[in-house]
Design a binder for these strands. Structure first.
Length: 434
DNA sequence: TCTGGGGTCCTAGGACCC
DNA sequence: TCTGGGGTCCTAGGACCC
């Protein structure tokens, strides 16, 4: 399934990456046009910290990841619009953008909620003009502004996209790396951490080897870097030279794990509160599992106290159950999560976070039925799950729930500033008065 | 008082096998 | 005295991504 090559591909590939500008903030603005031109920030789950900023918010110095309580006053003083994250809205807007993009290239790879690679190889048109048209159509049809970077490798396309969003190329939302005359000068001005795949750790280690910028990295010996960093860094060197090592992955690889976890709205000490939370996490995990037509071989439940709390020792623990047969039955996963919790719960602690992980997934139906654990029971479970899913699809998530989930709601996230689900919930449609 | 959630890939090292 | 070598599988941890 993986299309990673270990040798660069000499053929004349052309990759583009389309990246939505300030995606979450842009989604909110589509339905709140009065926010255009104003600073907007979107907070993480639980209204914890800043995870998306409009250009105006960046300009007044609000940092990515800043804890909200630290910037709350500043935000008020500067008239910043503050919003809780609304993943139902962002997920649906993303789907629309990707659908439009798919009409412009023979192959696309949806890389993240707001990014998509396009294979433009062999399209003999004026690619900059073509991509400007893509930007215009996406904006008109979805309301979301995007930027596009074009290059012979994914790494350079990502860099071109970044340059189109800011710096000396920002006047145009499309940048074709192959048209940049002084590309080595640009690389010399590019910090290592601005490259795809290099973060602070690798930057420090590269600095120790005397490599300080993207140009120096491009000119380094790939084999030598492989010795120090492994194959990932070797590929980055080739990709900076315009030799593609990373193919477009237009067939999504099957999921390898499913995780549902949350920080709680308030710290929890009670066993019943935690039990309700992990029961819900198990149910959500089971739903995701069925949605992807997978089954879980095991379940891990974990709990954590806050690492920032100085009044009690940090406690984190997990318990894992293995199933005799792979399952995606909500009730079975709930029971495993509850039994696991009983094992790791310690009284007199304030818990901050918990979660359920399904670490080993198999395609559903692959598992052999054992001799004594036969088909009848499993068919009944499948029918029940299909009915539950159909009801919840039709009437909205959690319309029908297990009792174990609702025994406590104290763990629910804070979402003080959440916008309506304009596009996914009929009761929350935008109202326009004329 | 208040600090996100959900993923992937790679490597090293140990166990085990022939 | 001299004590194989290579393959595979698994796991934990590191690093990175958005």
């Amino acid at each position: 399934m993986s299309s990673v090559r270990y040798r660069p591909d000499p053929s004349d590939k052309v990759f583009a990456i389309a990246d939505c500008n300030n995606f979450y903030a842009s989604c909110e603005r589509v339905f709140r046009p009065e926010l255009n031109g104003k600073p907007v920030v979107v907070l993480s789950n639980n209204d914890g910290c800043v995870i998306a900023r409009s250009n105006e918010a960046k300009a007044i110095g609000i940092k990515m990841g800043a804890p909200f309580f630290q910037i709350e006053r500043f935000a008020r003083q500067h008239g910043v619009a503050v919003l809780s994250s609304n993943y139902a809205l962002y997920g649906d807007m993303s789907r629309r953008v990707m659908q439009v993009l798919a009409g412009f290239a023979p192959r696309i790879e949806v890389y993240s909620i707001d990014e998509c690679f396009l294979d433009l190889t062999g399209l003999h048109t004026d690619l900059t003009g073509y991509c400007l048209e893509i930007c215009a159509v996406v904006k008109q049809w979805t309301g979301i502004p995007i930027s596009i970077g074009i290059a012979p490798s994914k790494t350079l396309a990502k860099l071109a996209n970044r340059l189109a969003k800011g710096g000396r190329f920002r006047q145009c939302p499309v940048l074709d790396w192959r048209t940049v005359d002084d590309s080595d000068t640009v690389l010399a001005e590019t910090a290592l951490t601005d490259l795809w795949g290099i973060a602070a750790r690798s930057q420090s280690r590269l600095n120790l080897l005397g490599i300080a910028d993207a140009l120096a990295l491009k000119q380094s010996d790939p084999k030598r870097l492989r010795g120090h960093f492994g194959v990932v860094m070797e590929r980055i060197v080739y990709e900076l030279r315009g030799l593609s090592c990373l193919d477009l992955e237009d067939v999504p690889a099957p999921r390898k794990q499913i995780l549902t976890s949350r920080s709680f709205g308030e710290k929890l000490t009670g066993y019943d509160d935690l039990r309700a939370a992990v029961t819900y996490f198990a149910t959500r995990s089971a739903e995701k599992c069925r949605q992807h037509k997978l089954a879980a071989h095991a379940l891990t439940v974990f709990v954590e106290t806050s690492p920032f709390d100085t009044r009690q020792p940090f406690y984190a623990n997990s318990a894992t159950f293995e199933f005799q047969l792979p399952t995606h039955d909500s009730a079975q996963l709930q029971r495993a999560a509850q039994r696991g919790l009983a094992r790791i719960f310690r009284p007199c602690l304030s818990y901050q976070r918990a979660g359920v992980l399904l670490p080993e997934l198999l395609p559903e139906g692959v598992a052999q039925l054992s001799l004594f654990n036969g088909g009848e029971q499993s068919n009944r479970s499948d029918e029940l799950m299909q009915t539950l899913d159909a009801i919840n699809r039709r009437y909205g998530r959690s319309s029908i729930r297990y009792a174990g989930e609702i025994l406590s709601q104290r763990w629910r996230m804070r979402q003080q500033f959440k916008s309506p689900s304009y596009t996914t919930n009929i009761h929350e449609l935008l109202t326009i008065r004329i």
